[in-house]
Design a protein around this nucleic acid. Structure first.
Length: 279
DNA sequence: AAGTGAGTCAACCGCCTAGGA
DNA sequence: TTCCTAGGCGGTTGACTCACT
């Protein structure tokens, strides 16, 4: 007997999310929170499985997400944390406010791995690669597995020295990054009153441009699809389906997210203000 | 202009775990 | 204690873009 699927997949939509679906999800979570992911799609009127909704929210729609490439400091932190924790992306992501495990995992696989190899460092073990020969050694199955925590890396004296070096660099990097974060949090930036713990830091890059969510109604009929650096929507009549009244543009311009909290305690005010603005 | 290969990243899959009955 | 369920996690896939030929 196989495992039961996480949800009834018959009739459920898959693939890229449309702007309309994003809107439905955002509006539902803003209004109700996400008490139960399994029930959420039905309640929100989405033909998606709960897992898909959760993933979309966590990886893309959550307001406290930073978008765009990782900064050098963030990258350094990822490398250091990876040396410590291995492929525990969610743990690594938890040290980088506004970044998701998926994002970090992708960045690791596409950028950092390559970078480290170019620097002569094995991205798996964080140890120097063997000197290249005409016949480069293939990674053994053991090497392909998740690297152990740095504390267990290295047995020789040289390895131990390297390890100490690594740990020192790791500590300094994390300290630097923390200092950086502190600087950001104590800066006179309009959003500086936000709590670090809330992880809400939209000052970096808004997660989705409001204009990308609230679509203009006079979209030319030829517009069958569009994408932006962060979002890709599949164009269809669904894009224009009864979009909810929430106006992200106004909300963003009026800094309505400044009071965002996980428990949506200010939700009433948010809803009232948004409906007032729409009138 | 068309074809092709590499790079990127959003989304899915399936396993694991915590918590409740 | 056992079973079941929902949520979480890491690995993988595949659609899309872009550079190159």
């Amino acid at each position: 007997m196989g495992r039961q699927p996480c949800c009834d997949k018959v009739g459920l939509k898959r693939g890229p999310w449309t702007a309309g679906e994003d809107n439905k999800l955002i509006n539902f979570i803003l209004t109700n929170g996400h008490c139960c992911w399994r029930a959420l799609p039905k309640l929100a009127g989405l033909l998606r499985c709960g897992k898909s909704c959760r993933l979309r929210w966590i990886n893309y729609l959550k307001p406290d997400l930073k978008r765009g490439l990782l900064s050098e400091h963030e990258e350094k932190m990822v490398i250091d944390l990876h040396a410590q924790l291995g492929n525990r992306w969610s743990k690594i992501a938890s040290q980088l406010p506004g970044r998701t495990d998926n994002e970090i995992k992708n960045h690791w696989n596409t950028h950092i791995k390559k970078k480290l190899r170019n620097m002569g460092i094995d991205p798996l073990t964080h140890k120097p690669l063997p000197i290249a020969t005409d016949d480069p050694p293939q990674p053994t199955p053991k090497e392909q597995q998740e690297p152990p925590p740095s504390s267990s890396i290295g047995t020789s004296e040289m390895d131990q020295n390297k390890e100490t070096e690594l740990q020192t660099s790791m500590r300094s990097t994390i300290t630097e990054a923390k200092e950086d974060e502190d600087k950001i949090m104590t800066s006179p930036y309009p959003f500086d009153s936000m709590e670090v713990n809330s992880g809400f830091c939209i000052y970096e890059v808004p997660l989705v441009k409001p204009s990308e969510i609230v679509l203009p109604c006079d979209l030319p009929p030829s517009t069958s699809s569009f994408s932006s650096s962060g979002a890709s929507y599949v164009g269809s009549s669904e894009m224009l389906e009864d979009l909810p009244p929430f106006d992200w543009h106004c909300a963003y311009n009026n800094n309505m997210f400044g009071f965002w909290e996980d428990d949506f305690s200010d939700l009433d005010r948010l809803i009232n203000e948004s409906s007032n603005m729409n009138e």
